[in-house]
Simulated scan of single mutants.
Amino acid sequence: MKIGILSDTHTKVKKAKATLDILIENGAEFIIHAGDIVEPEVLELLKNCGKKYVAVYGNNDAHLVSFHNKYNLVQEPNYFKLANTKFKLMHLPYYMSPDAEVVVFGHTHKFHSEFNNGTLFLNPGESCARNKPVSECALLEVTADKFFVTYYSKKKKDDFFKAKEFSYKRKKK
């Protein structure tokens, strides 16, 4: 299963749409937003992208609580199972314990992909291109024996996203 992951869209709705589009174009079957959604329009993009999704509140999302029942918004840490894999989703990197096979987080605005003792820790970076002139996202492909991470980045002046791939062998259960 291919899972599209974005985070830290902030006020950049067009950049959020571009990152969602690249994930869907590359086969994302499910979308995860790791917080700091900020704009209700980003929630609409998620709801209308044609894929199932989940989004976690970030430290800049308290005002979105009035939309809680309209969208698939969750509080951190949120645990769920997808593709026979236990996920933990959060925005703030405060719950970094390896109590899931995949730990998805945001907040730092820095791409991070690390496989440590059977747990993949994954931050897709910032979609908003706020802290650096780059929009980022990640596509996670989950198979029975591996995690494949494709990191997408696009400089503000570029017309297309560049991809970099990572592969991790899963531990047998």
Rank of each mutant, 00 (worst) to 15 (best):
P93A: 14
P124H: 11
K132P: 00
D36W: 12
N123T: 09
N48Q: 13
Y57C: 05
L73Q: 06
E41I: 06
L43W: 09
N84Q: 12
E141D: 00
E41S: 15
S135T: 12
H107A: 11
T108Q: 02
K52Y: 03
F121Q: 01
N72C: 09
H68D: 15
P93T: 08
V134S: 08
L122M: 05
A138H: 07
G27K: 03
F105L: 04
V104T: 06
Y94K: 14
L64H: 03
Y71S: 07
E39Q: 15
G58T: 07
A138T: 11
H68P: 00
E29N: 10
T19D: 05
K86S: 13
A55K: 06
A55W: 07
D36R: 13
K88V: 01
G27D: 10
I31S: 01
G125N: 08
R130T: 12
C137R: 09
K52V: 00
F115L: 11
Y53R: 07
F30N: 01
N117R: 13
E41H: 12
Y71V: 09
K132A: 14
Y79D: 07
V134I: 15
N69T: 12
A129D: 01
V102Q: 02
N78Y: 15
Y57N: 10
S135R: 10
Y94G: 12
K15R: 15
Y79V: 05
K17V: 03
F121E: 04
N78K: 13
L46H: 06
V65M: 03
K110Q: 14
E76Y: 02
F121S: 03
V142G: 03
F67A: 06
A100E: 00
H68V: 12
Y95S: 12
V102W: 02
Y79Q: 07
N84D: 15
A62G: 14
N69S: 13
P93I: 06
K15Q: 13
E126R: 04
V74A: 06
K110A: 07
D21T: 13
F111W: 08
I24F: 08
L45T: 02
Y94F: 14
G50Y: 09
V54S: 07
T143V: 05
D36L: 11
A28L: 02
F115Q: 03
H107P: 02
A62K: 14
L120Q: 01
H107G: 09
E29G: 15
V38H: 12
K70M: 10
L23V: 10
L23H: 01
G118D: 05
V134W: 11
A16L: 04
T119P: 08
E76C: 03
E29W: 04
T85I: 05
L89E: 05
E126T: 13
T108R: 11
E25C: 01
V65Q: 13
N123F: 04
N117K: 15
V104S: 03
G50R: 11
V38D: 10
K70V: 11
N116I: 14
I31M: 11
S113V: 11
G58V: 06
P98T: 02
D21K: 15
V74F: 01
A100Y: 02
